[in-house]
Amino acid sequence: MIKETDLNTAIWLLFLGVPLAAWQMGEIYTITLATKICVLALAGVGLNIALGLGGMVSLGHAAFFGIGGYAMGILASHAQSYAPIMETPFLIEGTKSMPVIWVLAIIMSGIAALAIGALSLRTNGAYFIMITLAFGQMIYFFAISWPAYGGEDGLSIYVRNDFPGLNTLVPIQFFALCFAILTAVIFLSSRLEHSRFGMALQATRQNETRTQAVGLTPYKIRLIAFVISGMICGLAGAVSADLNRFVSPTMLSWHTSGEIMIFVILGGTGRLFAPLVGAAIYIMLEHFLGGVSDYWQIFLGLLLLMVVLFAPGGVIGLLTKREAAHD
């Protein structure tokens, strides 16, 4: 069968190649779709750290994705209207600079992940799934009913934010930026997986008692992983907001959490490139089935069901014929 590393290289090259080809042929929309896949895959890579490595089934990661999005929305909308966010005790102004926005998005979603994680990780199993879901809903309802930043209407940013040296409004340049971030984060996530911390994290998933016996604190390890995972989702949210030039509470809804999870599982839980493959399949299905029937979600549902029942290793598992190390 195909070796997973070979397959990963092929996937990576494919994802670089298709948009470049589309660029040459003037198929602008294909580039936009590829960018969307990259951004959603980035959120998936974040979730995969909690889900695949740490075995933490979180149904509330939309919260971090949305907080990242709102970090971008709030900063950029203040820059757009030239109204400072805060004047006392010291002046904070909005910004249209992507790197600054990203850093803030990562910090804000990290803080949220720390708070939610610290409470949620006191529980496990089904409790953990439902408490993360409920925290997600709490933030979702807050965003809808809080009028300052548009409530359910969300925030529109008319022009994409700036990145030094690039014209981000040109689709291929923005794609290149997103693809570079995705590649960097996948690389970091692979380093993390094979680091001492990554080993310890996987140990907590496989056997909690034994992990404790060797002197590690599973709670602390899980919490750190949960925060890293939330931070990556926050970054993905900020980039996604820039792709759409728009943020709204929909980013925070539990359907978003479900979709991010679907990307990971469709690709193959715990595998490095799973989120990219999963997001690609999902977006393409949405794109093509949507044109075939108004009731396309039935087919999407059936397909997902088939994957869960008959291909537990996801698509990558199917191609490499090796059962994923998830238990």
């Binding site: 979600q297 039935i298 549902g301 059936l302 397909l303």
Partner: peptide
Amino acid sequence: RDHLDQVLATFALILIFSEG
């Protein structure tokens, strides 16, 4: 199966039931 598979499969059922 683990909870993860259950969540995904029953999420798929929601899509099927709602649109059905």
